[in-house]
Amino acid sequence: MSDMDEIKLNTSELKDRAKDLRAGQRVLLSGTAYTSRDAAHKRITEMLDRGEEPPYSLSGAAIYYAGPTPAPEGMPIGSCGPTTSARMDPYTPRFLDLGLRCMIGKGGRSKEVIEAMKRNGAVYLCAIGGAGALAAKCITGCEVIAFEDLGCESVKKLTLKDFPLIVGIDSLGGSILQ
């Protein structure tokens, strides 16, 4: 398979297949992903510190760093573009060590995050910034599952269908972002 081929992948396969993806490959991702940004990451970390379960299982999970706008009539979600991933870096190594397999966002990641990705066989997929309306067309379901008081930054369970992404950083530390 050449790097120009699009890899169709379901989030349920990430636990086994994330380690096989390489920087620069194009992925059409389907399945379940959770929106979570810095305010939600902070609350989830506080829950973990208290010995509580997070609002979704991190084992094999995909997190999309996004704060979708409200859904227009007849749509499951509004504009849903990526946010800057580095804002989640203080929390991410712990989440990766708890089984997180895939992060979706934009921009670079810290050395600590990349080391945790390598340690855990995880992948960072880049979404196209500024194309939130286009991204929303690949989201067929959206349900708020935690922290509703955070508004657009609440944790949402998304159902993705052929969401176009590029492997930004792979599980070996290979990167298109350097």
Results as ranks from 00 to 15, higher is better:
121 G>E: 13
113 V>W: 00
104 I>P: 06
122 A>P: 13
56 Y>W: 15
50 R>K: 14
79 S>G: 11
52 E>C: 04
63 I>W: 06
75 M>S: 15
125 L>M: 15
87 R>D: 12
64 Y>N: 11
68 P>H: 08
97 D>Q: 14
83 T>F: 06
124 Y>P: 05
109 R>Q: 09
116 A>F: 00
120 N>K: 08
84 T>G: 08
70 P>Y: 11
53 E>H: 06
125 L>Y: 05
110 S>Y: 01
69 T>W: 07
115 E>F: 00
43 R>D: 06
92 T>H: 02
99 G>S: 03
114 I>A: 01
45 T>H: 09
110 S>A: 02
80 C>W: 05
94 R>E: 03
46 E>R: 04
108 G>T: 10
114 I>P: 00
45 T>W: 04
44 I>Q: 04
122 A>W: 01
47 M>K: 07
46 E>S: 10
120 N>A: 09
69 T>M: 12
50 R>M: 07
58 L>P: 08
90 P>Q: 08
124 Y>M: 10
93 P>C: 00
127 A>Y: 10
108 G>F: 01
53 E>S: 12
79 S>N: 09
125 L>H: 09
54 P>F: 04
81 G>W: 14
116 A>R: 00
47 M>L: 15
91 Y>E: 05
62 A>V: 13
68 P>Y: 13
99 G>I: 04
43 R>Y: 13
47 M>E: 12
68 P>F: 09
54 P>Y: 04
84 T>F: 09
95 F>Y: 13
56 Y>P: 10
66 A>P: 06
46 E>M: 08
80 C>N: 13
65 Y>D: 15
86 A>R: 11
80 C>T: 14
119 R>A: 14
112 E>I: 00
105 G>P: 05
49 D>M: 10
83 T>E: 12
89 D>C: 07
73 E>S: 11
88 M>G: 07
108 G>P: 07
90 P>Y: 04
66 A>D: 07
124 Y>N: 03
53 E>D: 15
81 G>P: 11
107 G>A: 05
112 E>G: 03
114 I>K: 05
79 S>Y: 14
58 L>H: 09
61 A>C: 11
117 M>I: 04
61 A>W: 10
123 V>P: 15
53 E>G: 02
122 A>Q: 09
127 A>F: 13
44 I>G: 02
81 G>Q: 12
65 Y>F: 11
95 F>K: 00
93 P>M: 00
111 K>F: 10
126 C>G: 15
58 L>G: 06
102 C>D: 02
83 T>N: 11
120 N>F: 11
111 K>L: 06
75 M>Y: 10
103 M>R: 13
78 G>W: 09
112 E>M: 03
49 D>H: 08
75 M>R: 15
120 N>C: 13
52 E>V: 06
46 E>I: 01
54 P>W: 04
111 K>W: 07
65 Y>G: 08
90 P>W: 12
45 T>V: 02
64 Y>F: 15
90 P>F: 04
86 A>D: 10
59 S>K: 12
120 N>T: 15
77 I>C: 13
81 G>E: 11
56 Y>M: 15
122 A>R: 02
84 T>N: 12
50 R>I: 03
125 L>A: 10
